[in-house]
Design a protein around this nucleic acid. Structure first.
Lengths: 208, 208
DNA sequence: ATATTATTTGACCAACTAGTCAACTATAAG
DNA sequence: CTTATAGTTGACTAGTTGGTCAAATAATAT
């Protein structure tokens, strides 16, 4: 009963957009309200605090990212390692579009919030940690498959390798944002799969 | 003439510490003053704005990092790739100490500021871009040496490889901060050198 | 000793911050 | 058609933000 509202969704959408393009601390409640055409009183009707809106925005970001990026790619039957390349390519396209549209490479929304808030808000830190864990699980599954199919050495540590790939993707996003250059993503993305090659399989001595 | 002062240095030191542990936007001018025992009037005697203090703090951070970390390691005559491992190990020790002392893995001060401010302050973005460029140059020189000495394939692109390694280090720092776990640095650091192995030298097909 | 000048001080400001609240309004369900 | 209730509104805090300034002070070079 009572009336219905789209204010909550609009606020979450605005939070993703505004905080994604700038930062948590650089975006105020008032601006969030103005941008979504919601009055401040309504804001606090739906969210106890700006931080709670952010928590929900993170959930929405992650859900959309899984639905639009990870699931389609990692449920497809393309070759294991190719999946990483496809994902990196999508990231490149996304950042290119962001630069085209706003003038700025915005980087990874999760990584941005993680670095800004991890030491200041334990709840947000834990939420992003859990998301990174889930994200790396997508990678780990693919790596396990590759090991089972003999495409990767049995010495491979799937969990660490998956985390290494995620770390690298985050690092490349950080560089792309810092250089404000989306091509960084495609250029540095090419060597990503090398992180999968087990040290014991291809020992350095063979190449040095 | 006139009196001398240590206020400027104290403010820079406080900025590195406070902003390093939290974030640019989370630390105010008042707190910076309180922490360094300087009155706000003195702050603005030495710096036209908080952002100008930050600019100088970034310079100081970088100078110290080069002097205490990069120069000793990269001017030593240890084996090329070993240098990367030594640096990563130092990073691990630093983050361990940070966690021991403050309870938090703080990550890389440059990366933190880069992600927080790149889309908001073009001058700071450019400053960190230039620092990353310089930083990668240390790596590139080592890679070029390794290629010349036959330790690395001639197909290696030294600049991109150097940037890839820097990206990876930043990504690993980000993960360490997000998981608030310094051991992430040592665990993920181990595979870093694989980014040096040229794709053409060790083609994926050989391992898949 | 003095004049010069760098530094210090604390009071001050306007703008903004996150957040509150009581009154008002629209609507969905009975 | 009423009533219960969900949502809206705008005025309102109290505290903080980055930044200003004129006057006081201390040290230095002469």
């Amino acid at each position: 009963m009572g009336r219905t509202s789209t204010a909550k969704e609009k606020l979450i959408t605005s939070a993703i957009e505004l905080i994604g393009n700038r930062s948590y601390n650089a975006v105020g409640v008032q601006e969030l309200c103005d941008h979504s055409g919601v009055k401040k009183g309504s804001f606090y009707h739906f969210f106890p605090s700006k931080r709670d809106l952010t928590l929900e925005a993170i959930d929405t970001m992650w859900a959309k990212f899984k639905e639009q990026m990870l699931d389609p790619i990692f449920n497809s039957d393309i070759k294991a390692f190719e999946k990483f390349n496809v994902l990196m390519n999508k990231a490149y396209e996304y950042q290119s579009a962001a630069k085209e549209c706003t003038g700025c490479v915005t980087g990874c929304g999760m990584g941005n919030l993680a670095l800004e808030l991890s030491t200041q808000d334990e709840i947000i830190r834990q939420k992003i940690e859990q998301i990174f864990e889930e994200w790396a699980q997508y990678f780990e599954d693919v790596i396990v498959d590759a090991v089972n199919e003999g495409d990767l050495s049995v010495d491979t540590d799937p969990r660490s390798t998956a985390q290494a790939i995620l770390a690298y993707m985050e690092g490349v996003s950080l560089m792309g944002k810092t250089f404000n250059d989306p091509t960084m993503l495609s250029r540095l993305g090419e060597v990503m799969i090398q992180l999968c090659i087990s040290k014991k399989n291809i020992s350095l001595e063979d190449n040095m």
